[in-house]
Design a protein around this nucleic acid. Structure first.
Lengths: 135, 135
DNA sequence: TTAATAAAAGACTAAAATGTCTTTTATTGT
DNA sequence: ACAATAAAAGACATTTTAGTCTTTTATTAA
């Protein structure tokens, strides 16, 4: 689940990319990756077609999705809600000592992830020619 | 590992507290909690004595420790370092598109956790009379 | 110095996350 | 239609994390 941001944008260049190639470029086990991509595909975040010349790709619409969508799809949105200290009673009415501070941090993070689209992130990435391998 | 912030400060009131009482107040399985507390105790973040009238407590020194110390002790300091996107190449020289933004968020979080001591957090908590149970 | 108390330590089990393998289904070129 | 390609699906194995239980060790009070 972790190593996953990588993929979405490997396929951003219009053409379709087979999972073998992706897995290789990202060095993540092929089948494992497949499972995750299938999940993202089911959720409409990426697209895929079967058969020869098939593979994964991302259409223009999906390129406009914020990074936050990927995170939510993969990890749920716990990151965006809830008390940072894990205190369930913590709320606006009854805030824990760090409630306000945490909120600031969280909001900043959310804003960042919501305003950055997949396409954008990718463009910038390519500009800096970063590889996406693990190490 | 998650439900743990709770404890440290349950014992902030000077006297020693048995694990059974803590476990109950925090509703976390006793033995599991014990393991964690032992860990924290070994690392010097909390104190304990055996025998009758023994239990866990926190001395004045430890009360002055920042919350960040607990997090580091329990989860390691991954939160405080590394690229938010999980890109290993990401660095000052070769920053990923969100590097700067992430850094800001991370720094804010660090500052917060470093400047808030256990004692302080606890005092504020008690003032707001929050319970520490899970729900 | 012994009995009771309470944490420390370690072996063990269960659950969840991660990763692998096999079969099925859809697509396309021949 | 058929063979080849590639993702989808799902069964299975491994590893990590969480949680339980039992035994040991230290402390204290009688």
């Amino acid at each position: 689940m972790r190593a996953v941001f990588y993929i979405a944008h490997r396929t951003t260049d219009g053409s379709r990319v087979g999972i073998k190639e992706i897995a290789e470029q990202v060095d993540s086990p092929e089948h494992f990756l497949a499972k995750i991509l299938q999940d993202l595909s089911r959720k409409g975040l990426i697209q895929s077609t079967k058969g020869p010349n098939g593979g994964f790709y991302i259409d223009d619409q999906s390129l406009k999705r914020p990074l936050a969508d990927i995170i939510k799809a993969l990890d749920g949105d716990d990151i965006f809600t809830g008390c940072g200290m894990g205190l369930s009673q913590c709320s606006e009415k009854n805030p824990c000592p760090l409630h306000k501070e945490f909120k600031k941090v969280r909001n900043q993070l959310s804003r960042m992830l919501l305003t950055t689209t997949i396409g954008q992130f990718n463009k910038d990435l390519l500009a800096g020619h970063l590889s996406l391998k693990k190490e």
